[in-house]
Design a protein around this nucleic acid. Structure first.
Lengths: 169, 169
DNA sequence: TGTGGTATGTTGTCATGTCAACACGTTGGA
DNA sequence: TCCAACGTGTTGACATGACAACATACCACA
């Protein structure tokens, strides 16, 4: 256990006025703020994408993933983007059904499929990218470049700790 | 629209090696990192709380809310903690069923209920708080106090922008 | 006194992405 | 050659918390 693992409880607590007890401060607990911000943004974005493009945030992320790594398998995409393979599998099924992705079996391992975007999938990717960038910039109104870089650094550190949790459990 | 609303697209994009096209960089997009971190933490925590205490993360947040604001209505709790009133209503129903919260109708407005934790609810709150603090500190391994304060500041800013979105849409 | 608008709370529906179980193919060692 | 362990992909179950619709109570104004 690292020596820094000793942030004081006090910084996350708020005092109750009447009886000296304490409880969690939502405004000073990153986990609560994180959850609220993420949920509110993604569900909002997902609904918008569904209405405008017919796919949700999860499928949008798969479009991005296959744009970067054409020919990915479920396992590879799952490992690369850090999303559970069950969810990846389901998303690819939806994209295939919608004519946005297709699978090839080129491997000696007949279990393995390689996934590629169709032309329609690539076009949709380009269309959604414009909106996704706008929405993200809108979310980041009032942020400087340093703020964004710092936010990315802190969130990446959290993700490392979440991955590391598995190793320590 | 503020002048700062002009972070360049480039900072969120990554180039594709083969054909000069671009797509979203997951590692440089706060919205993606945010979502991954939040989901991974909360679902993990929720599952742990369910196993250890019989309530999920949502109900845990309601225990905190009623500890701070005994006598809250659904509407008030919803406004205070920023969670949709439907979810609040359902959570309170679960807590009531589990004997952890109870409602009183003290208002001239007979629609309105005031919610309080029972003794069992307060005890459970105290029990979960210990674990919640441990889990949050574990998540924040390697973070300095300044890091935590900065993360809270940036996440709060995001939440403000999300609230502001509604006003601007 | 009646009515339209608002408020309170409940319930339905939904996407996300986790964990788990399962079926089946692959691999390496006995 | 056989088999245990592992890998790949699929499917089930689930909690979260959003948006929406609804039922009913309340309020202010004509």
């Amino acid at each position: 256990m690292t020596e820094k693992d000793d942030l004081p409880d006090e910084m996350f607590l708020t005092d109750l006025e009447q009886d000296g007890r304490q409880t969690l401060s939502f405004s000073r607990s990153p986990t609560v703020l994180l959850n609220f911000a993420a949920n509110r943004f993604t569900r909002n974005a997902s609904r918008h994408y569904q209405n405008a493009f017919g796919i949700g945030a999860m499928d949008w992320r798969m479009l991005v993933s296959l744009t970067r790594d054409p020919g990915s398998s479920v396992s590879h995409a799952s490992a690369t983007i850090g999303i559970d393979k069950g969810a990846v599998s389901r998303s690819l099924a939806r994209l295939e059904k919608a004519g946005l992705a297709s699978a090839q079996c080129n491997s000696p391992d007949e279990r393995r499929k390689e996934w590629f975007l169709t032309d329609a999938g690539q076009q949709l990717h380009d269309d959604v990218l414009v909106t996704a960038l706008e929405r993200q910039k809108h979310l980041l109104r009032g942020f400087s470049r340093q703020d964004v870089a710092e936010l990315n650094r802190l969130l990446s550190k959290l993700l490392e700790n979440l991955d590391g949790s598995e190793a320590e459990n």
